[in-house]
Amino acid sequence: MQKNKGFSLVEMMIALLISTILFLAFFSIVSQFQIWSSNLNLLMERDANVWLAPLLLSRWITPAGNNRWNQNWSGVAVQTGRIEINSDIHGPQGFPDSELSASFEALVLRCSKSNLRVKSGSGSFQPLIKNIADFEVDSENMPLISVRLKAVTDRPLFVLTENLSESTEFLFFLRNYRLNLFSEDPR
């Protein structure tokens, strides 16, 4: 009985030692696991919207200025951190009707509060793409427009100190600004 007790103490000590080592190993793995998982989540959140940007922007920017001849609005206006896109692309019969009536015909894009925001017609700015810290538009090489987006994570990543903002440049050739030998004036 006494022998059994003495043996249990040694056993307990060994067990404690092993347990401590295992606990430490386990928790370091779990914490690593958690850090990685959290970081990956942040990165995926950052990218989830930005990855759709070329689709969204190409659909809005490339047809800019459709049917703008003899109209009282310009097709594209670029200012610092802002682009205004006017395209008469739809009407009641399914064809341009010389009015910017549909919600997607008169758009303004700009960035604020870590969101790329869009304003349709006379409405207010609504978030379009999250996690965007900067939005720059360059129209120097018209009809080729360059759009730069700087995507950031919601909050800094754990442990890692590297810069996790991601800048991407998209180019859009404005099809309705292509040169024509003859005047586009609708006769």
Binding site: A15, I18, S19, L22, F23, A25, F26, I29, V30, Q32, F33, W36
Partner: peptide, 17 residues
């Protein structure tokens, strides 16, 4: 049992990592 469990957990965690 605890030792086996921890071992199992560690191996599983390493695999997950």
């Amino acid at each position: 049992e605890v030792m086996v469990s921890f071992l199992f957990l560690t191996v599983a965690s390493l695999a997950l990592l």
